[in-house]
Design a protein around this nucleic acid. Sequence first.
DNA 1: AAGGTGACTGTCA
DNA 2: CTGACAGCCACCT
Length: 103
Amino acid sequence: MQPFTARTIEIIASIPPGKVMTYGQIAAAAGSPRAARQIVRILHSMSGKYRLPWHRVVNAKGEIALQDEESSQEQQWNLEAEDVEVLPGGRIDLARYQYFPES
DNA sequence: AAGGTGACTGTCA
DNA sequence: CTGACAGCCACCT
């Protein structure tokens, strides 16, 4: 397991309910500001094995990044279950729900 | 071992 | 607002 991967898992797992983080944010927090795409790969391969709260991860625009209709709806449902308001189009108000590990 | 891939991002038009 | 482009990098053939 690469340090980057381990840190990524740790970070994602630390996102509190009702909050979300962007891929770039996680990548930066994990040590590679430009490795947003790695987060995607890690989510793909680890979400099943580590039970990560993948639904709390959105893209830089604050939208659900999933392309698969079913999965994206599942993510939206999970977010709403945590009192996150998902606007039409699968968009989320980052100003209200983005999680900053620092603060 | 070499090349492809992706739930991305910032910039420019 | 939309679309095109080029970085980016761990993981999977």
